[in-house]
Design a protein around this nucleic acid. Sequence first.
DNA 1: AATCACGTCAACCGCTTAATC
DNA 2: TGATTAAGCGGTTGACGTGAT
Length: 507
Amino acid sequence: MVSCSGGAGSEGGVSGPRGIGGTIQSLKKGPWTAAEDAILIEYVKKHGEGNWNAVQKNSGLMRCGKSCRLRWANHLRPNLKKGSFSPDEEKIIIELHAKLGNKWARMAAQLPGRTDNEIKNYWNTRMKRRQRAGLPIYPQEIQEKAAAAFHLQQQHQHHRRPQNNTSPSLSSLLASQNPAYNPPVSMFTTFNYSSAANPLQNQATSCYSNPDNQFQLYFDTNNTTTGFSLPLSSTHPYATSSTSMLNQNMQTQTMPMPSFKFNSGNNFQRDMSFSSMITGASVDNQIDFASGLAPELPSSQIPPQQATPASSGSSGGVCAMGNSSNTNINDFQISPKTTSGNSGLLDALVQESQKLSSNEKFNGESFSDVAHKGKCVADASSGEEEGNDGVESKMINSGREANADKQCDERSSSQSSIGMKTSNQEPELSDEMNSMDDDLMSLLNNFPLSMPLPEWYPGTSVDASNRPPSSANADANQQNASSTSAASADLQWSLGSCRWNNMPSIC
DNA sequence: AATCACGTCAACCGCTTAATC
DNA sequence: TGATTAAGCGGTTGACGTGAT
């Protein structure tokens, strides 16, 4: 494969044929000149697009095919729009990003005349601006739209399919609000989980999630957007190591990550941040189950004490798996070999969980064991847990009541578990989710149950000041962004706990 | 006027995916 | 079916312009 990368050529400079013999020819790099543009345009006129590697041979242009293609695609091809984005375009970009994440090319396909590079640059600068201004990543408008549309559609579905526990895709919601927006496919999957945001209300909360896990939206049954923006994907801009903005955004704009709780019936409370699993956040080849957020920090932003997963867990982070015992969070330093991307993370998780499950400090009971032992274990759990702590009990009760209308077997169905599918999902999405189901089931089959609870977690003895900064910020932002502002900080922090059979889909 | 910080943009780079043999 | 090649994609970098100090 011909490659432009590496090797000679320097600093935007021109490096022509080298050596007298001319045996080594390096390609020019850096900005294109008008003359080069003209050559390329002429070439494309003659030969058409494609076969870019032939450009150099046939035209004498000292540019690699890759470079030619980029130049053509981004600057020379006809019908390119130049100039700043119109308000409509900006709106579409935001909506598309909410749906697709950093799929710039796919976004560009929805914006005629715009290139992926343009959109990417726009988004990144926009993110910087919003970060600096302390604004949410996605405007309130987008959230409200989705919430409103969700309400309508939910009502509609309730009449038509009262048993259907699924929610409309955000893309369809957005489309319903914006006729100009015509997404290629519905990319959202949905799930519901019992809300612990406000145990007093016992309201079911729905959550949107797109298959890339780039963000999620939470709604309670009053159609209040109770939470928003949950970057979960390693490919998401806010989850990239180089994009430092992610941290502030996550900390200031996001809800606490949803966690799911496992009740084994023997005094174990398993609560772990699903997002912390998904974000994976391989930094220094470590997965931090405990922090969720900290691993995404660029190294320069990671406080020394948070630089390692173990320590970050105790000092901050969204949520951590754990029980209510005094087990030290440091017991859960997990350092699998990872790859970027969810699947790699899952592999690593499975791998590591296998190790951990064989460790004698765990009781050896796996998630799936629990799952199979009692589908209704949460409902069946007795007061022995309630002595544990009030908050967690409330959370459990909240979920219990919120799901009172559902049967146990219904909740334990594949649809209500990880990778829940909707009946109208696109095949490709279903495939992805099937695959993810397998991965996750493998994970669950091997995952140890005995997890330490971070000190800041509600119900533990540590005061709220030890909670991660993100929670405080999220609380503050939550009050701005939703009508659930009355909820206490602790209660908000506990939002998202859900039972295993109602946990968020990852797909 | 010099310097710095910041924003914008174009291009590069490495990786993945698709197509072809 | 596997290897090779081409194309595409997304993250990152660096140059340049502009405004503030």
